[in-house]
Computed example of a mutant assay.
Amino acid sequence: MQQFVLKALYVLVTVKYPRLRPDLRYFIRDNYYSRLNQFQFWAKDYVTKSPYKVVDFHGEFDQELRYVMPFAYWHFLNGTLKKTVSSSNTKPFYFFSENHEEKYNKRVWESGYGYYEVPNMTHSPSFSFSKWKRVPLKAHYKNDVFVYDKPILIIANKYNIEWDKPPINFLDVAALDRIISTYKSRYQIIYNRPLSTQIVVDNSEIMDLNEHEWMRQNHPEVLLMNDLYGVHKDKVSNFNHLQLMVYANCNRFISMHGGTAALASYFEGINIILSHPGGGMEHHFNEYATIFPALSGAKILHAKNRQEVFDYLDTNY
């Protein structure tokens, strides 16, 4: 029955989006199916409304942030959340869940395919917000610890394999030097590129950019998230907890395509996202204008190359 419905939905998508590339239609089809799948829970969600929903996910971090966490939070507000299950060190993200299990020690990106348990499960030109609520990470984690004389500017960089290719979306040392030199007098810059030992990795191998020691020597005014963790690790439960506390006090971000960009989009303010064309599906579906700003109401500025990052900085920061 499932295969029949999926085939019928693909035909529907083909009729509705005749100019769309055939392979992209599968994403929309899967989202349609995931929304139809919710009808079986109508009575539990809107009539009996007792805790029953177990939200269990260990796919890509980006997918969890965009679709799974807001779904779990909706069930929490609805009174129907029973349990959440995710990867190691994710309890801070699910602060609202009274029963959260950190079951998985590795993310498996393939597990996101065929995962029809949430109304939105993959890329799409439109999203359902009927069972999707913003998770108030900023309000929950705002604090008096990470407060400085100048407003915070977070550079959330990454340097890892993308789509089985060498790194594409990242700021190299030259770009970092230009940004830091220009803005360190105006902002307290905090640099964040987590090490593989600090987060749960998936298929994207993290590589070495050799920028941390360079930054300590050439721009000692910049605070490194890795160093902050060393100083404050007795006050936080894990590295993710630290990230949430620091991000909650910030309104200006530079982030990279993927989970890095999704996380920074949770904290209002302005988020410049470096995402080169030719890789992720966000470009095809214009998602930097839809789901990303929906995460917190943040102003999202999509930079398609490093020069556009500099241009957005010049006009907004």
Results as ranks from 00 to 15, higher is better:
1 M>D: 14
2 Q>V: 15
5 V>N: 05
9 L>I: 08
10 Y>E: 15
11 V>E: 15
19 R>V: 12
19 R>D: 11
21 R>K: 13
22 P>S: 14
26 Y>K: 13
31 N>E: 09
31 N>F: 08
39 F>T: 15
39 F>M: 14
40 Q>R: 15
41 F>W: 13
45 D>M: 07
45 D>L: 10
46 Y>C: 12
46 Y>N: 15
50 S>F: 10
51 P>H: 02
60 E>M: 13
61 F>I: 11
61 F>M: 12
63 Q>M: 14
64 E>V: 08
66 R>M: 15
67 Y>V: 00
74 W>D: 04
74 W>I: 03
75 H>P: 00
78 N>S: 04
82 K>M: 02
83 K>P: 06
86 S>A: 10
94 Y>G: 03
95 F>C: 07
96 F>A: 02
97 S>N: 06
98 E>L: 14
98 E>P: 12
101 E>L: 14
108 V>R: 15
112 G>Y: 06
114 G>H: 10
115 Y>A: 10
118 V>R: 01
122 T>M: 09
126 S>P: 00
128 S>M: 09
128 S>C: 13
129 F>H: 11
131 K>G: 08
132 W>I: 05
135 V>W: 01
135 V>I: 09
135 V>C: 02
137 L>Q: 03
138 K>S: 11
138 K>H: 10
140 H>D: 00
141 Y>W: 09
142 K>C: 13
147 V>W: 01
147 V>C: 03
147 V>K: 05
148 Y>P: 00
151 P>M: 12
153 L>W: 04
153 L>H: 04
154 I>C: 08
157 N>F: 01
158 K>C: 09
164 D>T: 13
165 K>Y: 07
167 P>C: 03
169 N>P: 00
170 F>H: 04
170 F>L: 03
170 F>W: 01
172 D>I: 07
177 D>I: 07
177 D>G: 00
177 D>L: 03
178 R>D: 08
179 I>Q: 01
187 Y>L: 02
188 Q>E: 09
189 I>K: 01
190 I>K: 09
191 Y>I: 10
192 N>P: 04
195 L>N: 14
195 L>R: 14
201 V>S: 12
203 N>A: 13
204 S>L: 00
204 S>R: 11
206 I>R: 14
206 I>G: 10
208 D>E: 09
208 D>C: 05
210 N>L: 12
215 M>F: 02
216 R>S: 09
217 Q>S: 12
217 Q>K: 13
221 E>P: 00
221 E>N: 08
224 L>K: 01
224 L>I: 08
226 N>Q: 14
230 G>Q: 02
233 K>M: 11
235 K>W: 08
240 N>M: 10
242 L>F: 00
243 Q>S: 11
246 V>H: 03
250 C>Y: 01
256 M>H: 07
259 G>H: 00
261 A>Y: 04
262 A>I: 08
263 L>S: 06
264 A>F: 04
264 A>M: 08
267 F>A: 07
271 N>G: 02
274 L>M: 06
275 S>D: 12
275 S>K: 06
276 H>S: 11
282 E>K: 00
283 H>L: 12
284 H>G: 06
286 N>M: 03
288 Y>I: 10
291 I>W: 00
292 F>I: 08
292 F>C: 04
294 A>L: 09
297 G>Y: 00
298 A>G: 02
299 K>Q: 12
300 I>C: 05
301 L>C: 01
303 A>R: 05
305 N>Q: 08
306 R>N: 06
309 V>T: 02
309 V>D: 01
310 F>C: 06
312 Y>R: 11
313 L>Y: 05
313 L>H: 02
